[in-house]
Design a protein around this nucleic acid. Structure first.
Lengths: 108, 108
DNA sequence: TCGAAATATCGAAGTAATTCGAATTATAGA
DNA sequence: TCTATAATTCGAATTACTTCGATATTTCGA
């Protein structure tokens, strides 16, 4: 998959969405369901995010869709639940883009 | 100076503003006036940017102000001209922030 | 000091983003 | 199959962003 830096920056430029992203990333990336959490112990699902933030479920869903659309987050259906998984590759791609611009200034 | 990642991401999330930033960065960062360009040969001034993009001067001015406000660009007055200088430190700060989030996922 | 050039500020129009509540779809389990 | 739970979609209200043209400010040079 290829990542669009502008779309990634836009996704990260909203404080709510950035907080949601950080929460999903902290929740881990193994994606292994073991039945210990509402959906799993190594990742978060929609309900976890809804419970964590003071935002309507529809708003969480909208922000999450943006995170998925830009590649920052991946989803897996797990029965009733939607597992949200970090995709650090997208962040790394945007970070690399920034470094390229920084270096184009002659900063070495 | 400290940099606000969210404000930097917002500044980078507009295609016009990102293009202006890239132009300023490519124009260099020495900030040494030698009289060879409209304002200088190692950097760009407002007029250079206005001449490069198909946007009204007031729009360029507004975007530049955002870039300066977030720390991505520095300005120096040079007589009639305003020199625009890259500040890669701000980009590096935002890039480092992204890497921290990426690493919080367990990606090592 | 006066005019021209560079840049900034202001106000307005159009567009996009954020958020919500209500209604809808999808799935698991009784 | 019916119900409860999880999540999404839709429509609307509010706010923010982008861009412009017109006007104002700053500075150089005649």
């Amino acid at each position: 998959m290829e990542y669009d830096p502008v779309e990634i920056f836009k996704a990260l430029s909203n404080p709510s969405r950035l907080a949601i992203l950080k929460f999903i990333y902290k929740s881990g990336m193994t994606g292994t369901f073991d039945g210990e959490g509402p959906c799993c112990a190594q990742c978060s699902c929609m309900g976890d995010v809804v419970g964590k933030f003071d935002l309507a479920p529809s708003t969480i869903s909208h922000h999450t869709r943006e995170l998925v659309r830009t590649g920052l987050v991946r989803v897996e259906r797990d029965g009733q639940f939607i597992r949200l998984l970090p995709n650090p590759e997208a962040l790394e791609a945007a970070s690399a883009f920034m470094n390229t611009v920084a270096e184009s200034s002659g900063d070495r």
